[in-house]
């Protein structure tokens, strides 16, 4: 009998698999069982991955609420104990909308969300509309020094007292991100860092970029023939005749993933009330 997957696989996966390979190639039954065992191990364990494309495999993540995004993330969702870096050219490109389903889930679990130096004031009615209880939110003001903000983030991640830690910083050096990543692993908490730019060799688990879908590049690559299709895809016509802009989410880096992937999402709610855009277009 083959042993069920256990810790020894994780320590030295290659050697163990090789040994079993030599022993059990004779019968297809045992081979099937082995594949199943390995497959299970790969899907359950975020520490173990194949040296190939891993996006959308495994199920150890927390669902993001956007199925298309789940498809390109390892573990089909946000990691449980890691740092996620979200990069945007400016604040408010849709990066909070990306996290709204996650925040809703965390508040539902009666955990707290810590916001460290958000660039603007939080608006409680909007949180209520999004289904997030504002009572479960703690905010550390913007005028806190960077050192104190990072200290708070590290402590919050380490102690596991909050369900989610969000922090806004323009840029952080590698070793700081590395330290936060270790803190997140210790406290088994998800931390999200919003940044304007990132260093190339960051140690975070996942790095995403939120940007407007770049028309010109796409057009150049695809060619003039598809130009009209591209424009149509970019501005999606909704029921009420409103145009919603799609946001592009690019996975810059994910552990266990080599290929840069991107997905276009409609982050904002589409059904806006009493729309009379044309009348008021000219101020």
């Amino acid at each position: 009998m083959i042993k069920p997957p256990c810790c020894s696989y994780i320590k030295s996966p290659m050697t163990t698999i090789n040994e079993t390979h030599g022993e059990f190639t004779k019968t297809s039954k045992t081979k099937a069982y082995r594949d199943e065992a390995i497959g299970e191990l790969l899907t359950r364990n975020p520490v173990l991955w194949r040296g190939c494309d891993m996006s959308g495999l495994g199920n150890y993540g927390q669902p993001t609420g956007y199925p298309q995004l789940d498809d390109i993330l390892p573990g089909r969702g946000w990691p449980h104990n890691a740092i996620v870096e979200i990069v945007s050219q400016q604040w408010g490109m849709g990066e909070l909308q990306l996290l709204v389903p996650l925040m809703r889930e965390i508040v539902r679990q009666d955990k707290w969300i810590l916001w460290i130096s958000p660039p603007y004031l939080l608006n409680s009615p909007a949180l209520l509309q999004a289904g997030i209880d504002p009572e479960q939110i703690l905010v550390i003001n913007l005028n806190t020094s960077c050192k104190d903000a990072l200290w708070s983030m590290e402590k919050a991640l380490q102690t596991g007292s909050c369900g989610l830690v969000l922090a806004w910083q323009n840029w952080l050096p590698d070793r700081v991100v590395r330290r936060l990543q270790l803190a997140a692993e210790t406290g088994k908490t998800l931390g999200v860092l919003f940044q304007h730019r990132i260093s190339k060799y960051s140690q975070s688990f996942l790095r995403l970029e939120v940007k407007k879908r770049n028309n010109k590049k796409q057009q150049r690559r695809i060619g003039k023939r598809c130009e009209r299709d591209q424009l149509a895809a970019n501005w999606v016509e909704t029921r009420q005749g409103d145009y919603c802009h799609k946001t592009e989410i690019v996975v810059l880096k994910a552990r266990g993933n080599f290929r840069p992937l991107s997905v276009q999402l409609n982050l904002y709610p589409e059904n806006l009330p009493h729309q009379q855009p044309d009348r008021y277009n000219n101020p």
């Binding site: 939080l122 409680s124 009615p125 949180l127 209520l128 504002p134 009572e135 939110i137 703690l138 905010v139 550390i140 003001n141 005028n143 806190t144 104190d148 200290w151 708070s152 402590k155 102690t159």
Partner: peptide, 17 residues
């Protein structure tokens, strides 16, 4: 710990009115 480090002023809770 947070209030010991950064004081009591900057840490705030949100409530809706």
């Amino acid at each position: 710990q947070l209030q010991a480090r950064i004081g009591e002023e900057p840490v705030r809770k949100i409530a809706s009115v």
